[in-house]
Amino acid sequence: MFELNLPNLLTVIRILLVPVLVAALLQEAGPGESLAAAVFAVASFTDALDGWIARRQKKVSTFGKLMDPLADKLLVTAALVSLVSLQRLSAWVAMVIIAREFAVTGLRQLAMEHGEVIPASIWGKVKTVAQVAMVLLLITVDGSPTWLDVFVWLTTAITVVSGADYFFGFRSLVQARLRGEPQS
């Protein structure tokens, strides 16, 4: 059941901003890039804000646990696919990032089905900040300066390391369970 509270409302707003982002990015004339950057920045901010509010006000809900990560994936995937369409991002970079996002989400879901929680790691948080910065830079910077190419490569590497970190964490959980050790 959808509980109407501020964190869940922010998640729904983030989902509703996805088509606005895509439309702004793909429009051929006018202030599309500025609007797209603003929409992406606001949507990214709601991601941090809804989680913070939910934990602080003890408003964590089943809807939020399911829809918050989905909203994040929709936002990032829509931005990356649009940037590939605009030839501002290589398709392989988008696919690496999107594949990591869905693989880790699936892994977390699998762990949850077994009563385990894989919390966000420091690598996951660094990855999120890097991806948000990368998308904003790809929207707002004209051309493809070398420093931006390096930042895209760095973000991709952080994304891969973050994904590996989650998989090794999951592996440790499974091994501990097989040995009968208490879970942390």
Results as ranks from 00 to 15, higher is better:
Phe2His: 07
Leu4Gln: 11
Asn5Gly: 08
Leu6Arg: 01
Pro7Met: 00
Asn8Asp: 01
Asn8Glu: 02
Asn8Tyr: 01
Thr11Leu: 03
Thr11Tyr: 01
Pro19Lys: 05
Ala23Phe: 15
Ala24Ile: 02
Ala24Lys: 01
Gln27Lys: 13
Glu28Gly: 12
Gly32Met: 08
Ser34Trp: 10
Ala36Trp: 01
Val39Asn: 10
Val39Gly: 04
Ala43Lys: 05
Ala43Asn: 03
Ser44Leu: 02
Ala48Asn: 13
Asp50Gly: 01
Asp50Lys: 00
Ile53Leu: 05
Arg56Asn: 02
Lys59Trp: 06
Gly64Trp: 00
Leu66Trp: 01
Asp68Pro: 05
Ala71Gln: 00
Asp72Leu: 04
Leu75His: 01
Val76Lys: 09
Val76Phe: 11
Thr77Met: 09
Thr77Glu: 11
Leu80Ser: 04
Ser82Trp: 07
Leu83Glu: 00
Val84Thr: 14
Ser85Gln: 15
Arg88Lys: 13
Arg88Val: 04
Arg88Phe: 03
Leu89His: 03
Leu89Met: 04
Met95Pro: 10
Ala103Ile: 08
Val104Lys: 06
Gly106Lys: 06
Leu107Gln: 04
Arg108Asn: 03
Ala111Cys: 03
Ala111His: 02
Met112Asn: 14
His114Asp: 14
Val117Met: 08
Ile118Cys: 08
Pro119Glu: 09
Ser121Pro: 09
Trp123Tyr: 08
Lys127Ser: 07
Leu136Lys: 08
Leu136Met: 12
Leu138Met: 13
Ile139His: 05
Thr140Asp: 10
Val141Gly: 06
Val141Cys: 07
Ser144Tyr: 11
Leu148Trp: 07
Leu148Val: 11
Val150Ala: 15
Val152Trp: 09
Val152Met: 12
Thr155Leu: 12
Asp165Asn: 14
Arg171Gly: 14
Leu173Trp: 05
Val174Leu: 14
Gln175Phe: 15
Leu178Cys: 04
Arg179Ser: 13
Gly180Phe: 12
Glu181Val: 06
Pro182Asn: 11
Gln183Glu: 13
Ser184Pro: 15
Ser184Met: 11
